[in-house]
Amino acid sequence: MKHARLTIALGLTALTAACGKRAETPVAAETNQATPATAAMSGDMGNVAMAPAAAPIMAKGHGTVTAIDKVAGTITLDHGPIPEAKWPSMTMAFKAAPAIIDAAKVGDKVDFDLMLTGSAGKVTAIHKQ
């Protein structure tokens, strides 16, 4: 118990001592000189090549509506595998427009279209089976 109290006391002392210190200025590798943070961020960013955003992938699925959350704008589906996303069967919530959410009710067996962006999906259409 004494060891734990000592460890906590030393940790709090170190944190308190570090609170008043300013962050160190980054050092440029070539000149070994301090570089002001504003210099590193200034300039025209128009000529910087940006990685293109991954294009959304369209996918289709089949499943059962297990929950609807109108406030969050989500519909939860217990769906089969979705090969386009490399997803196995699972239950998950998807964003959906209010009209899509209003067209479904818990327990409905549905076919649905998804727009996949990264690891997230949005239901873009839903059809009762």
Rank of each mutant, 00 (worst) to 15 (best):
A55K: 14
A96W: 01
G43M: 02
A72P: 03
F94V: 06
T64L: 04
A54Q: 09
M41K: 13
A49Q: 13
A99I: 03
M41S: 11
G61P: 10
M90P: 04
A97G: 05
V71A: 14
T31W: 02
R5S: 12
P52Y: 10
F94K: 06
S42K: 10
I100S: 07
S89N: 14
D102R: 04
P83L: 06
G46M: 08
A28Y: 13
I101L: 05
R22F: 15
H3L: 12
A67D: 11
N47K: 14
A40P: 00
C19P: 01
G43F: 02
G73W: 06
H62Y: 15
M41A: 13
P81K: 09
Q33W: 03
H79A: 03
S89T: 12
L15W: 09
A39Y: 05
I101Y: 01
I68D: 07
I75R: 07
H3P: 05
T31L: 04
A40W: 08
V71L: 08
A29Q: 12
H62T: 15
A51K: 10
I8Y: 11
N47C: 09
A103G: 06
A54Y: 02
T38M: 12
A49Y: 00
N47T: 09
D44R: 04
E84A: 15
R5W: 09
K86P: 00
L12H: 05
A23C: 04
P52E: 14
T31F: 06
P81E: 07
M50A: 13
R5V: 14
D69T: 04
V48T: 09
A9D: 11
I75L: 14
V48F: 09
H3I: 14
G11L: 02
I57F: 00
K21C: 06
A104G: 04
T64C: 01
E30M: 09
T38V: 15
T13V: 10
P81A: 10
G20N: 11
A97Q: 15
V48A: 08
R5Q: 13
N32H: 11
P36T: 05
G11Q: 00
I57M: 07
G73K: 04
G46S: 15
E30W: 10
S42V: 07
M90C: 07
Q33G: 02
G63M: 08
P56F: 00
P88Y: 02
D102I: 02
I100R: 03
A104K: 00
A103Y: 03
D69C: 05
A85N: 05
A103N: 08
H79S: 00
A40H: 01
L77C: 05
L77Y: 06
